[in-house]
Design a binder for these strands. Structure first.
Lengths: 192, 192
DNA sequence: CTTAGTTATTGATGTTTGTCAAGAATGGAG
DNA sequence: CTCCATTCTTGACAAACATCAATAACTAAG
């Protein structure tokens, strides 16, 4: 069951055979039905996840009641809420867009693991750093690209998203209204 | 000299008198002239900073040779490059927009400090978490607000920026072209 | 003070997005 | 299968931004 986790982690750091063994042993797996809210904005985030099957969306609602999709997490993605393990209320929601199978983690269990297998702590630290760098990069990218360029990027690099995600949610991910995404797509099919 | 650091840190975490004393003792201060590049995109970031005087800009250049301002760091701001202490090349530049006086830090010095004063490690960890949360929040905010709203936010919360920063750099921070910022400003003065 | 270089504004024009409203397509529940 | 709710598309119009080009304002160096 932990194979997917190992394949994911291996993209970012080198794992020793012993570490791989460890990960396989220590995973808690749960399933959720489509539509399940894993975390609510304002609540405390006391779990982190790893997606084995399905797709999870993270989104936030601001004072204008506008909903913004922050990220989609399909298979082989780690989901670590920003407020994970802190006392601060969560800044965003987590929602299952399909029936999902997830690996669950929580701070207490993590601490237990760290005590038993100290190497685990640096793995987690590195993962945190990687996520932060990715976040910064996508922010920079977001500022320099137009919605159309962002859409084309997704078509090229994450084409399955288009089949699995409602377009109005993709629109809020791109930072435009659903109508604009609709027209953008029409434009693209015409010109090619 | 460390007073400003203490005042900054105190905004985010509680410091004991002993910790404050520590910080005062252990700071390395340097000065740079306007225009100095502290860090280049592609290079290794082996220093982090704290601004005592002046203002530093972080920006990135993407494949289209477009320059995007990521953040302005005036007095009392910590600057921790995302790739700080890692072997990854930096994703952004750091540039002094004025003559600057900065507190310098590097990973080796940090490790030394951690060994001597273990409490320091958790201070740094918390600071990292705070920065990450801020980054995520500004990203979400960026997606839901229009350029005009972002400009008004700066006028209200960081009014000094407008006097210290060239408008074309502020424009790239807001995600628009200088011409558009110019017109946006004109619009606002007319309607109020 | 003058000049060269940078930064800011303005005008004209085309494209894209937002908004409001209506209609078409899709999908799930009974 | 039918119906209802959600999701997607389309139209018309206004607002905002990008682009190109020219001019104005400002700054720093000689």
């Amino acid at each position: 069951m932990g194979n997917e986790v190992i394949s994911y982690l291996s993209k970012h750091i080198k794992l020793s055979p012993r570490q791989k063994e460890l990960i396989e042993k220590c995973t808690i797996v749960k399933s959720y039905t489509k539509g399940t809210i894993l975390l609510r904005q304002g609540n405390i985030a006391n779990e982190s996840y790893f997606v084995l099957k399905g797709i999870v969306r993270s989104y936030a609602i601001n004072d204008n009641e506008q909903e913004t999709t922050i990220e989609f997490y399909p298979e082989e993605q780690a989901i670590i809420p920003l407020t994970y393990g802190k006392r601060i209320p969560s800044t965003h929601f987590l929602e299952c867009l399909e029936d999902c199978t997830l690996i669950i983690n929580n701070p207490e269990y993590e601490q237990e693991m760290f005590a038993k297998y100290p190497e685990f702590e640096s793995i987690c630290r590195v993962m945190g750093e990687v996520m932060m760098a990715q976040l910064q990069e996508s922010f920079t990218d977001y500022k320099t690209r137009k919605p159309e360029e962002r859409y084309l990027y997704i078509m090229e690099h994450r084409p399955t998203l288009l089949q699995r995600v409602p377009l109005y949610q993709l629109a809020s991910y791109l930072g435009i209204k659903p109508e604009s995404l609709s027209r953008l797509r029409k434009r693209l099919t015409k010109n090619n």
